[in-house]
Design a protein around this nucleic acid. Structure first.
Lengths: 341, 341
DNA sequence: GGCAGGGATGTAATCGATTCCACGAGTCCA
DNA sequence: TGGACTCGTGGAATCGATTACATCCCTGCC
């Protein structure tokens, strides 16, 4: 592969001049510029990003560590992150932690070794020393969706509290009184916050949230299935199951169907995170939709602000309730209610 | 960030010795090794992968360019690719082409500039000069899922022909005679092959595939919707719509529902690519399942073989039909038929 | 005792870029 | 006419690693 030296030789100039041409430095004669461009074209020369990064100490690359690529919510997030990053001149390397802290550490370490310019993380746990050290050491970092309390890192996320309140109001209006939740890991902020928001909303309606109605999931479908089976085995099963993410909702649906029961007649279902498929499940699932695209874009902007020396801002955007049929009585019949993720 | 020089100084040895320790070179005294390790730990030193890559001309990184991250099929593929690569000591950088050739080129160029060790591609089109040149120039490359004919690059893919034949048999047995297909872009192998397989299978049953029953899609949901609307507007609409990928099937479902029609009573639906959600759609969708995980792993193995000087093999694995209820009469009732993707 | 061989180590070249500095030539103005 | 300045250019240092080569010292064998 041709290097800058080959270009210089072929154009009859020094490597310094070639570099100046390539970087748009003003002080280059038109003649030299032309000869260099010709040589570049003739040789099919492309600058070696590795060498450039070594010298400039910039990789123009962002790392994105997400909890689960198979989760459509995170895929959508990753996509919007990549789009915005590309628009700002950055590439993105995605690390999939699969909800496993040690994998998360593996990716963070790998990304740091590659000297990415900044890190976007949706932490799987309370934060390993590795990540905390990196943050403290000054690695530009932004948390997205989930975050770690007590660390001085901007957070870009959705606030689901209002939407959860709307959901509970909706459920209450439909006559449901025994509401259960499949929670995410308590070590994640989204895991604990959603339970708290749910509990607070229930309290407004004078409804309890007994421990038996709080199932411990891990954001994966299988745990949704398991927890739901537990709920169904209760002497007094809940009227509604609220899954704290879309995959656990999928598992819940599995469990309900495996028993030969029907949603919403036998038990209602709602989920946090709206995804396109929820329109087409049987029945369509009532969900809380996050502004995923805007979240990803805002996170990238905050991170790039930080990298380029500006002051990044934390951002909180509202989530909103999308009512479908999985909790009972359909909303006023209308054209297919499409997803908005 | 500490460099190898700092470690050398702190350990009282030369950088060469530090490098030897770090790379497990045998000719280092126990004493020196120990002092180096201590210094490494004390400084929290991590080798700079950028510098290392520049010197060794290896990045231990694979590029994966896929057509659409939002498509669960490709996400699953990406996941298995990353897993296998990690097991073999490589990282993966994913580029999402979004079915747009120019974006695909952008990512290929970007990955090449970063001097990735090898490229895994599921081409969005017939192949840009950029990609063909790279292949000819000797960049280790493997095609996965889709490929470009006439290029000397190993291909790892699933052969859906037998499964398509099974599907047609199934449809025929259910009494369907007017079968239509939503095809992918003809420029992609999967786009054209699936139509050909379908046509060939229909021929075995003496069924025609009129042009009006071949809708041109682009593997995205919206095109599935549009094509399906066209089918429904036909004086003689088809009995069955076979979507060449899961997203177009989703669009088809949308279109059918928007008309107030029902699957499979009014029109049946089948899809290429099985995904977990198909179990839970209304109705569950009959689909052709690819061995996605094995495909990803085999592709990585082939690519790494090529990179490390062994001879890579092309691999073709069989896809298989998963019957659910979207084409009519359920299969013998049984426990929930789970997805297998 | 001397020499060959091998182990441990350091020096320095190298990878491919960027960029500081110096230098020559040309321009402008006093 | 000469000095100051600008512009275009090249030489060389530099980024942080790896590694060929040279050196030194120790051991073992004849």
């Amino acid at each position: 592969m041709a290097s800058i030296k080959d270009v210089a030789a072929s154009a009859g100039v020094s490597v310094a001049t070639v570099s100046r041409v390539l970087n748009g430095h003003p002080s280059v004669s038109a003649d030299a510029r032309e000869r260099v461009m010709a040589a570049v074209a003739a040789l099919g020369y492309r600058p070696n990003a590795v060498a450039r990064s070594l010298r400039t100490d910039q990789t123009h690359t962002l790392g994105l560590v997400i909890s689960d690529v198979l989760n459509p919510y995170f895929t959508a997030l990753a996509r919007s992150v990549e789009e915005e990053a590309r628009a700002l001149g950055y590439s993105v390397i995605i690390g999939n932690a699969d909800e496993r802290p040690e994998l998360q550490d593996h990716h963070v370490r790998n990304l740091l070794d590659r000297r990415i310019d900044g890190l976007l993380v949706s932490p799987t746990d309370g934060g390993s020393p590795l990540m905390l050290d990196a943050a403290r050491a000054g690695t530009p970092m932004v948390f997205v969706d989930r975050w770690i309390p007590g660390v001085d890192v901007p957070v870009v996320r959705a606030d689901g509290r209002a939407a959860v309140r709307d959901l509970v109001a909706h459920l209450y209006a439909l006559g449901h009184r025994r509401l259960a939740i499949i929670a995410g890991p308590a070590a994640t902020t989204t895991g604990s916050e959603r339970v708290e928001a749910f509990r607070a909303a229930l309290a407004e309606y004078g409804l309890p949230l007994p421990d038996a109605y709080i199932g411990q999931g891990d954001f994966q479908a299988e745990s949704g299935r398991r927890v739901t089976e537990g709920f169904l085995d209760l002497p007094e099963p809940p009227d509604v199951v609220f899954a704290a993410d879309n995959l656990m909702a999928l598992g819940a649906l599995d469990a309900v169907r495996a028993r030969g029961l029907r949603v919403p007649d036998d038990i209602a279902l709602a989920a946090f995170d709206d995804i396109p498929w929820f329109v087409h499940t049987d029945p369509p699932v009532t969900a809380i939709a996050q502004p995923t695209g805007e979240l990803g874009r805002a996170a990238v902007r905050a991170l790039v602000d930080r990298i380029e020396g500006r002051t990044p801002r934390s951002v909180t955007l509202p989530a909103r309730l999308v009512v479908r049929r999985s909790c009972g009585e359909p909303p006023t019949p209308s054209p297919v209610q499409r997803s908005t993720t």
